[in-house]
Write a protein that binds this DNA or RNA. Sequence first.
RNA 1: GCCCCGGUGGCGGAAUUGGUAGACGCAACGGACUUAAAAUCCGUCGGCUUUAAAAUGCCAUGCCGGUUCGAUUCCGGCCCGGGGCACCA
Length: 878
Amino acid sequence: MQERYEAAAVERAAQTFWDRERVFEAREDAGSEAGKFYCLSMFPYPSGRLHMGHVRNYTIGDVLTRFAKMQGKSVLQPMGWDAFGLPAENAAIKNGVPPAKWTRDNIAYMKAQLKSLGFAFDWSREIATCDPGYYRWNQWLFLRMLEKGIAYRKTGVVNWDPVDQTVLANEQVIDGRGWRTGALVEKREIPMYYLGITRYADELLGDLDKLPDWPERVKTMQANWIGKSEGCEISFPYSTNTAALMGADGVLKVFTTRADTLFGATYMAIAAEHPIAAAAGARNPALQAFIDECRRGSTMEADIATQEKKGMRTGFAVLHPFTGKPIEVWVANYVLMAYGEGAVMGVPAHDARDFEFAIKNKLGIAMVVKSKSGAYENVVEPWTDAYTEPGITVNSGEFDGLEFQPAIDAIAAALEKKGLGRKRVQWRLRDWGISRQRYWGCPVPLIHCAKCGVVPVPDDQLPVVLPEGLVPDGSGNPLNKTPSFYECKCPKCGADARRETDTMDTFVDSSWYFLRFACPDAATMVDARANYWLPVDQYIGGIEHAILHLLYSRFWTKVMRDMKLIDIDEPFGNLLTQGMVLHHIYYREPAPGRRDYFNPADVEVLLDASMQRKGAILLTDNAPVEWDGLGTMSKSKNNGVDPAALVEQFGADTARMFMMFTAPPEQTLEWSEEGVQGSFRFIRRLWKAVHDQVNAPPPADAVTTEEFDKTKLNAAQKEMRRIAHSTLAKVTDDIGRRRSFNTAVAAVMELLNAISKHDNKSLAGRVVAHEALEIAVMCLSPMIPHVTHELWRELGHEQALALERWWAPDADALVQDSIEISVQVNGKMRARVGIAADATQDEAVAVALADANVQKFVEGKPIRKAIYVPGKLVNIVV
RNA sequence: GCCCCGGUGGCGGAAUUGGUAGACGCAACGGACUUAAAAUCCGUCGGCUUUAAAAUGCCAUGCCGGUUCGAUUCCGGCCCGGGGCACCA
């Protein structure tokens, strides 16, 4: 065996073997006793190069996949490309290369990078969402949704860049201007296609309880996003003059969770888009100007939240449902058309927003809830704050003196009797608008005919193929300038018609790719293999997808279930959200407002006497640089580490080892050059340990292998076996159940430390060491598969390690005759004593009391109680 | 404002069901080997007290309190850091 560890050669050989033997091609093996294991890492956007976040993500998945395979499971770990999206168009605008070419070149490069890291992907199932064979099923299912009314067309409000003639996502609007053009963004109402995710709101919320292996954090985020509110819908009849204009039997509907404050309503507030606002604006130019101003504002919710509250009278009024008193209707910029009824009752005394609005506009404030302690019972003007806690109703006519919930119940019942209201649930979740005025995406399969209207493309004409040679120039969607794409015949009447040029949100592509991986060559959208592999047993990805992607996928799955295409309710069983990869950020400010960032590899950190960071210098000129803390690796902060360079310098195994050992998978991981070195050093030590074992001179004693009897080991050899097998037990549990890879690696490090101290000059010692090394190599194989592949062979195995069955610990090796336990006196540690493993409480206590140091603390005091935790400790209470 | 997560040596982290706090690694320091360096190997490594050296003892898991024979772990109240949602009526 070669003495030197050479990563490149070892890794090439192992990867060649896995490829040639098709070790990781998935097979639907319904008879497999251990069952199936579908391990999925979120597929990447092909941006150009892999970054460390990818490496971390895919290493976690790979460890679990390789482990499951060795447990005898039928394993599927696929990989593909989330290949549609904006960066390809931006690259096209910059470089003049069609997005298709740019994307496919990136895929080729990144695939080679993934292969160099030795991930056990089944490449025969590779998918790119920009392939017509994939996205035709987006189109097919969209048409099915359209038939069922789950997909529909509606005119909605969007951010519109008037220069680029395109819709912008909220993230692309910076200070009210288009990020590329700098033009003032308009709110525009254009027709869009929506998917009715709100129909599934109840189930999407309720089924979160069926996901015990999802992080609580993610479930809470989804629940908040879905946002269930139980409240009342209340109708305020129009006053006489309003009815004259708006219709005789009209009412203004509001939604409220605080029906108990109904008698405190002193004004009504409606959104700028509300029909009453339109009617009022038509009669009042000043009001119309205000409405226009509101509508022009940002659609970003965070901006809306910090906006100053503004409003104007409409001149209309409505009547209180119980008192019949007229209440003025205002247009207010803080009311959202899309939530509830687009109108609220203003109760300044008991709502902070209404309070601010009322003070500003000098509206009345009527207290109708007092605190139980009476603190607010006798409020005297001037008002300083709203009282928003639940309390007891006052000044509310027949409903006085009721607590929060009874008050709501009584008022809702009375309203229902009058036909002016009812209890109902309101959701925060909105339907999912999927239209994008973009080129590089899946075409919406519809045709606009002057006679027939919007006509679906017939199934036998799918897919509607996106032309791949176009180069966007930044001004609008190039499909609109491509007659060969948009000119078509109406499928219904045969007349000249125009093809829809909008494409679908790329989140559609990723909402079902996990199903297609089960049957990438199916002639239908999915086939029976989907029901074999799904649900995904382990899904791994970044927390940034906690809401959108994971919610859309859950929705899409339920839609496909209702269409009887699949059997499952939920797509992902266990979810692991891996932490980000961070590195130090260094910069200089050569001029105010300008920052030059320096890569941490070129910076040396200076420490003071107590090891605290006191500064840093740039290695090239020895002059100081500023430290800006830790941040995610990014180009703009110049703090990235290139995976390709890392693999070249140290090998894939070192990169994987560092990722797995340095931090638990869910936490952020701080990059450290020294840590990488440490991982490399450990692999080299492991290599040397196996080398020394395999190349050692023959044992000193005369016993042959045949005569060796493992029941006749000396104490040190027994202890070596115990350590080896308990390490195996711990690693099995750490990977399989706890997903605690860092402690699994640490346990093997301890094992290797023990092996290096172990005396292997005798045959028995040699055999025990050999077995311990086999265990160390097997335990590390999911994390560092290349080097362990080679070492397993060197340890004398013909079968490749990836094809071996994971060992079960030898129960005999774990048995101990005597154990060490801790002795406490009054809960304080006083001694460690050895006792027989099967000692009774009395025996254990007797041994404990015999200890001199224990005696010192017990001496002369009566023993009140003795507690014995078998195998762990004795606590003597005096 | 609401919700969630976290706070342990110089650093990353460990302690799995309430039972030895600091595993394992990094950095640092001392030593061996070497002409030298790198690499490697051996040793020390939370603070304080005592000591020739040790043993022993005391303190210590953000702060304050509680439950318990025993609390990093459970409960209550605070402080700090990070994240999510946010005129959601």
